[in-house]
């Protein structure tokens, strides 16, 4: 059980948080313009990186705010957490942006 640094509340027990999967996957600007395949990739396909990646968390039992984290999925260790809209730290190759986190 990890200690997760909520960008608003500080370090808290992992059990207080809920998980939201990959970060920086923006909702398509115009879903109706997408092919079925493109839409399926938005709905169902996410990266599954073995290594450092950016992902979303929510501090469910406290401030209930979403935030992003950079974490190494091989060790499970958090490398950074940051607020939505803030750019992803350079720790990862993941893109930056405000969309979907």
């Amino acid at each position: 059980m990890q200690l997760i640094e909520c960008p608003w509340c500080g370090p808290r027990e992992e059990a207080e948080f809920s998980y939201g999967g990959q970060a920086h996957v923006p909702y398509p600007a115009d879903p109706s313009a997408l092919s079925d395949e493109e839409w399926a990739h938005y709905v169902f396909f996410r990266d599954n990186t073995a290594g450092v990646w950016a992902e979303r968390w929510m501090h469910a039992t406290a401030c209930r705010r979403w935030f992003n984290a950079v974490r190494d999925t091989r060790t499970h260790a958090f490398l950074a957490t940051y607020r939505p809209g803030d750019p992803s730290p350079d720790l990862t190759a993941a893109g930056t942006g405000a969309g979907r986190g």
């Binding site: 939201g20 909702y27 979403w66 939505p84 979907r100 986190g101």
Partner: peptide, 13 residues
Amino acid sequence: LDWMEEWLQTEWP
């Protein structure tokens, strides 16, 4: 509530 908050905070802040 979780669902609404997720969209509000992460997609339509």
